Structures are given as C-alpha cells and as structure tokens.
Simulated scan of single mutants.
Amino acid sequence: MRTYYVIAAILIAGTTAQESFKCPDDFGFYPHHISCDKYWKCDNNVAELKTCGNGLAFDASDSKFLTENCDYLHNVDCGERTQLESAISTPHCPRLYGIFPDDKKCDVFWNCWNGEASRYQCSPGLAYDREARVCMWADQVPECKNEEVAGGFTCPAAGEVSGASGSFSRHAHPEDCRKYYICLEGIAREYGCPIGTVFKIGDADGSGACEDPEDVPGCEDYYGDLDLKSIRKSELLAGIQNSGETRKPPQGKPRPSSAPARPNAPLQE
C-alpha cells in the first residue's frame, strides 16, 4: 500500500483578523502554534495563514522551514499542535482525506481523496489493521472475528487429521475452488491460489496444492472461457499482485458439493 505525500496540494487559503504571525525570514513555511492542519506561509516577509485539506496535517519536520507539505494525519507528528478543523465526511470517509477501515468488513479499507472513496480489499486470509494501517493475518487483528475472514471454519483438533504434518494442514474452501485454509497450531488462515489455478485436495487428509483447473474434478470450468495462459503472463496480473488491491476473481464454478467434506467446514446455504 502506497503512502501519498501531498506537496503544496489541495490547500485552502485563509486569514483571520484575530491571529498574527511575524515571519522569522523572508520566505518559508512555519507550523501553527496550536493547529496541526494550519501553517504560515511567508513570502517577502508577509505571512499568510493556510489550511491543509480536511484529513491532512502540516508536516513540520523540515528544520529549515522550506518545505510546504501536507500529509495524512496518521503520518504527521503533531506534538502539542492538537487542534484540527472540524471533520467533513462523505460515504466511507470520516474526513475528506485519509485511509479508513470499513465499518462492516474487516478485510476492506478505503482510500479517501477529496471525499472520493476508493475501495481496497486485503488478500485472502488478511485483514486491515487500524493501528498499523496495513493488511495483516486476520487472527492478529483484534477487530476481526474468525467467522468474518474464515467463513466460520474451525481447524480440526490436534491429532484429528491423519495426513497433517505436525500442527500444519490444508483444507479446501467449501464453496470456492480457488480458496483454501491453512491450519497452523489451531489457527485458520484463508489463502487463495494464484489466478489460473484452483485448490486440489490431496490424497492424504489435510493436504493439497494449487493445480490447473483441468486436473481438479468438478473445478474444470472455474475460469470459464478465459485464456489462462494469457492471464498468467499478463503484466496487468503482475500489477494487481503488487498493488495490494485485490480485485474480484472471475465468477467461475464453485467447488462441487461432492468434494470430500472437511471437519467443521459445513457448506453454507
């Protein structure tokens, strides 16, 4: 996930008769003494009060005061500059600028730019951590419940899976040919096979691997008429994998109900 820095962008100019500021030098950008999203611009020793976009704050880390930079609030150390302009909200955006979690889905977050929200979704098995502001394993995110990210799947008890390697085992997703679960010391994490492949249940219980759809009975038509060779080679796919944004996979055929059942993984109605 990229961090956006805003240099001299989306700034709302403003002056107040109640405030005055004496420029230390002919030219420069200086933090407001109590407001984190305000700053003073000095030009020819004349001070002008400026305000960053709603959800941005003035980055005062330049000791020479020559940088005009408003950045996301969570990236700026405001120190004693605790005051902020009142929030202006739009759908999915508590403020006009920022990165915010979804209210209902813990694996979704929104990047807000001037009040326009762009939806992002973490990769399978990951959830958006509100403090670190990155996608992490869902079981490491306090706000995320197992039933949200693993569809209620519960790992088998220790020793219950004969084909498991120690405390590690793989299990097919009950409804999606491409997805599967990995159980590690009793913790379920959802994974997704690379685009162009599906999960094939192994010969031993608790095992399996990602294979070509034609080699997985019941999942042959998961990708429909798409040219899988072109998909695997495309630069677009590489860009999706590196961007952190998960786009919807082709609406292919779900895993057939005749697939071997796994403990504690009932089919959803």
Rank of each mutant, 00 (worst) to 15 (best):
C112V: 06
D176Y: 02
C183L: 00
Y128I: 04
F100W: 12
E175D: 14
W137T: 12
F168G: 02
C112N: 01
P101H: 08
S169Q: 10
A127N: 01
A172S: 02
P91M: 05
G186H: 06
N146I: 07
Y180D: 03
M136C: 05
F109G: 00
K104I: 09
V149A: 13
V141N: 15
F109N: 00
D176C: 05
Y191A: 04
E116C: 14
D176T: 02
T154R: 03
S169N: 07
D176E: 06
G151I: 09
A127Q: 03
D102T: 05
A158Y: 11
A157G: 09
A127G: 01
C183P: 01
C112F: 06
E175P: 10
I99E: 06
S162D: 08
D107T: 11
K145G: 15
E185Y: 14
G115M: 12
R133I: 12
N146L: 03
G98D: 07
A188K: 02
A188E: 13
G163T: 03
Y181P: 06
D103T: 00
R178D: 03
V161N: 01
S162A: 14
A157K: 01
E148Q: 12
W137V: 08
A172H: 02
P124E: 15
V149W: 08
Q140P: 11
C155Q: 07
C135M: 03
P142L: 04
A158C: 10
W113F: 10
Y128A: 12
A117Y: 13
G125V: 01
Y97N: 13
L126Q: 15
Y181I: 08
A157Y: 06
P142K: 00
P142H: 04
E175H: 07
T90A: 05
E147I: 15
Y181G: 03
G166S: 08
P156Y: 09
S165E: 05
G192K: 06
Y181F: 10
V108N: 04
M136N: 04
L126A: 09
P174C: 08
R170D: 03
G159E: 08
S165L: 04
D176G: 02
R170V: 00
D129S: 15
C106D: 12
V161F: 00
G151P: 07
N146P: 07
A150S: 11
G186L: 09
C144K: 10
D102Y: 04
N146F: 13
G166E: 04
F153M: 02
V108K: 00
H173F: 01
S118D: 05
R133S: 10
K104Q: 09
G125S: 09
L96M: 15
F153G: 00
Y191N: 03
S118Y: 15
S169E: 06
T90M: 00
G115R: 10
S169G: 12
A127M: 08
A117P: 13
H171D: 06
G115N: 06
E160M: 14
S167D: 03
F100L: 13
C122Q: 04
V141Q: 08
D176N: 07
V134S: 09
F109H: 01
G152N: 08
A188W: 01
V149I: 12
V134N: 12
G186A: 07
C106I: 14
E185F: 10
C112H: 00
A158Q: 10
G125D: 06
A172E: 03
E131I: 06
R189E: 14
M136A: 12
W110V: 05
R133A: 11
A172N: 01
T90W: 11
